[in-house]
Design a protein around this nucleic acid. Sequence first.
DNA 1: CATGCACATATTGTATACAGTACTTCTTTC
DNA 2: GAAAGAAGTACTGTATACAATATGTGCATG
Lengths: 230, 230
Amino acid sequence: MAGAEKSQEAKKRKLLREHVYTGVKSAIIGGDFQPGKRLIEERLAADMATSRTPVREAIQKLEKEGLIFRLPRGGFAVKAVTEDEVEEILGLRSILEGYAAYLATSRITDAELKRLDEIIAREDACLKNLNVDEFIRLDGEFHDVLYRAAKNARLYGLLNDLRDYMYRYRVIILHYQRKLHLAVQDHKEMLASIKSKSPRQVERLVRKHVSRGKEIIKKKIKQGEQARVW
Amino acid sequence: MAGAEKSQEAKKRKLLREHVYTGVKSAIIGGDFQPGKRLIEERLAADMATSRTPVREAIQKLEKEGLIFRLPRGGFAVKAVTEDEVEEILGLRSILEGYAAYLATSRITDAELKRLDEIIAREDACLKNLNVDEFIRLDGEFHDVLYRAAKNARLYGLLNDLRDYMYRYRVIILHYQRKLHLAVQDHKEMLASIKSKSPRQVERLVRKHVSRGKEIIKKKIKQGEQARVW
DNA sequence: CATGCACATATTGTATACAGTACTTCTTTC
DNA sequence: GAAAGAAGTACTGTATACAATATGTGCATG
């Protein structure tokens, strides 16, 4: 009680600017900061219990990542995801993720293959339990392991940024696609192709897998733009 | 003489942080800041005639772009381009530039096609004049027009970042490849394929074109790592 | 002469201060 | 009552101040 009034007990090994970066990014991709919302530096600083300096530094990174944009007369606001952008991002992601899978086919380790097996098994379990939250987590981990297996740091970074950018639609992409088991099916096919060392086939499968959600999201956004559901 | 001692006459519409960003980035990719060089904030601030605040903001962007990295005990230093990274970056660039060309085939405008014709004509002229600097500029513009023709803002940004990252090797990639005319030949073939609306063919050509320099640079870096020529 | 310790210096990370500008709102004038 | 303008407010962009830490230096001591 006495001696440590501020809540900086456990998380005090991170730089403040990174804490702010993580926090604001989560708020954006989690949907807490709606598109168009202006970022008031002093407000964010207060929320994060810090000063404007780390906030401004975090803002620079968020701008470079494309999550926010500079307002004409100073300051920044949260960028909206337009339908065109969904097309752009998912088109890019399909190409890059295909490339990652292509590279992974020859570079993946036994440990990584084993991990993918485990994830798929758990995904199957989630289907039975109807545990959607856990399924989303596992889906993310599956792709993350795949990205990492490509052994290309820059590619890994790009894919994560693209994934994060689309994160706000994670529920739609998995929920509205009523047949959740299709995703697991895709994962199984991808893994099988990797195991049989067929880089071109796995590349094709990955592109199909990524493209599966694209039209769904685009349709939903088109509806959402009228209904303002987001 | 009197009334305006500071040199902020013509360029005073840009934000200081962007001025710093541009300046430091140029220094890095131009080779003025050698790999490993630590960035001293106050020094940079003095060089740019500003304070540490805009410098620190610029640094965040440079880090996100991958040109500098965080030192273990604070501060930043210029990243070295390793041979592995050349493989990574140019591998990625070949994929992305191929995709850009693929998209451009159906989206390019007449004006852009005309511009590409002009550029190739001027490149031919440079070959005769042995005007290498201008050739480098034109080569850059050719690719820039191509990137833009894909009409995908995110892709354009990624390709420019990758290009900038490799910029320090622009001289090698074009000089050491003694047959400069091969580059023009590639450009001509690419343009012809675009005009004949053969997306897959142009994608293949672009990948070949980008890959052409990869091995040269990698070889040169391997030599350079021993000779410390960079 | 090597080693360790104290002191000085350099540099970062963070907070705060200050100036300028755009926006609001209220008032004043026709 | 509408338009113009003047004060007040909010916010950014930039500069500076302060604290903590790391690094280097010199001196004393065994």
